[in-house]
Simulated assay, not measured.
Amino acid sequence: MIATQTAPQLPQPSQKVMEELPEVQSDKPTDANEHCPGTESEQAGKSAACDRCPNQQICASAPKFDPDLPIIEERLRDVRHKILVLSGKGGVGKSTFTSQLSWSLAHDPDAQVGVMDIDICGPSIPKIMGCEGETIHTSGSGWSPVYVADNLGVMSIGFMLPNPDDAIIWRGPKKNGLIKQFLKDVEWGPLDFLVVDTPPGTSDEHLSISQYLKASGIDGAVVVTTPQEVALLDVRKEIDFCRKADIPVLGIVENMSGFVCPSCSGESYIFAPTTGGGRALAEDMGVDFLGAVPLDPRIGKACDYGQSFLDEYPESPASEALMGIIRKIREKIGEPLEEEE
């Protein structure tokens, strides 16, 4: 089965959820080309795709107002902190870091944490968070997140698919519509932290989340990379995107930094930092370096089983590195971790 531009045929209650996605999200003129940014975009009438379009002048001069933005702002009024996890490069461990950050934040029983997965085409959060196969329930107040703990809720398109192997082949307007639904129709309730897992790149999903959260505020973005230059190339672009979108960069996390042998404690670099790795990139781009997480095969195992690596292997050097990074993130958003006596 392939999910196309129309809503896929899904069993209840998922089918009902998907049918509620607004088809009117395609705000393009009927005679626009396929790369049209849409009339509500800040790039309407200005992008290269608008050249020679008969609507160019109209789109460029028309006021840009999305009536859903005040609804989103009201819905997220009780969300205290919003953190984006970005990279620009796929396979560097964004979702893994998102899960561990979320599990750590939820260690405080008084904290309410939400995880929003906007990687529409590659939703891995349900698997990593141990809630694969769950479905979304609806009520008069909106969609209910899937809870993996009393104080930790998750929302992902992965809950809407009858088969986890189904491909999601959607153009930008459909993706934007779902992200908007996650923000304005999910009954998150009062949250202390909302952690947003993003796909690779600087495309539709990133533009949408930055636009939709602009009024309610974003605390900042954690940018994840691996040490090799082929990853750093894309991460530089992601940092540039954050600056152009006015998203504060909390800092850089270097994932898969090295492999520590469990027998001899010797360290080997699987991905050699030929240009200095994440630390050098942070210095070059003028952002903070939050820390480096060494390779530990048990991280992958914990993600496969939907477990918190920090809980399962607290003595691992990777756990110690992760906790050091998470402490810095909490300090940056004004929520320092209280030291245990």
Rank of each mutant, 00 (worst) to 15 (best):
F182M: 04
M1Q: 10
V113E: 02
F241V: 11
D51L: 15
E320V: 06
K244P: 09
E34A: 14
E74S: 15
L233T: 15
V146W: 00
D204K: 05
Y313D: 07
D165E: 15
P11N: 09
I83T: 08
A48T: 15
M116S: 05
A62Q: 01
R77A: 15
L178C: 09
G291P: 05
D296K: 12
T274N: 09
H137M: 06
T98S: 11
Q15D: 04
R236I: 07
P54H: 10
S14V: 04
E42V: 02
A48W: 00
D66S: 08
G45C: 08
F271P: 01
W188A: 10
T98R: 02
E205P: 07
V260R: 06
K64C: 07
S203Q: 05
N163H: 11
S124D: 05
H107V: 01
E229I: 06
T39L: 12
A272L: 13
P29Y: 10
L310S: 01
G291E: 01
V293Y: 06
D51R: 12
L310Q: 05
F159N: 10
V154I: 15
D185H: 05
Q112I: 00
A282T: 04
G142S: 11
D234V: 04
P8D: 01
T96D: 09
D219T: 09
K16W: 00
M116K: 01
W143R: 15
E20L: 11
G38E: 06
Q211K: 11
M1R: 05
G251M: 07
Q181V: 11
G140Q: 13
S265R: 10
N55P: 10
L213E: 06
S102Y: 01
G142N: 13
V293L: 08
K332W: 04
K94H: 11
S124R: 02
E331A: 12
I157S: 02
T138C: 09
D27A: 03
S99G: 03
H81E: 08
V186Q: 04
I136R: 08
V196E: 09
P200C: 13
M1S: 04
W188P: 14
N163L: 06
L337T: 09
Y305A: 03
R52L: 09
W170Q: 07
Q112D: 08
D288C: 04
V287K: 07
E134Q: 12
V260H: 06
E340G: 08
G172V: 12
V85G: 09
A280K: 13
P262G: 03
E205F: 14
G93V: 06
V24C: 02
A48E: 15
Q12R: 09
Y305H: 15
V222P: 07
C53A: 02
C36L: 13
Y147W: 10
H137G: 06
H206M: 13
E254Y: 08
I329E: 05
P200A: 06
G130K: 14
R171K: 07
D288E: 08
A49E: 14
A221V: 04
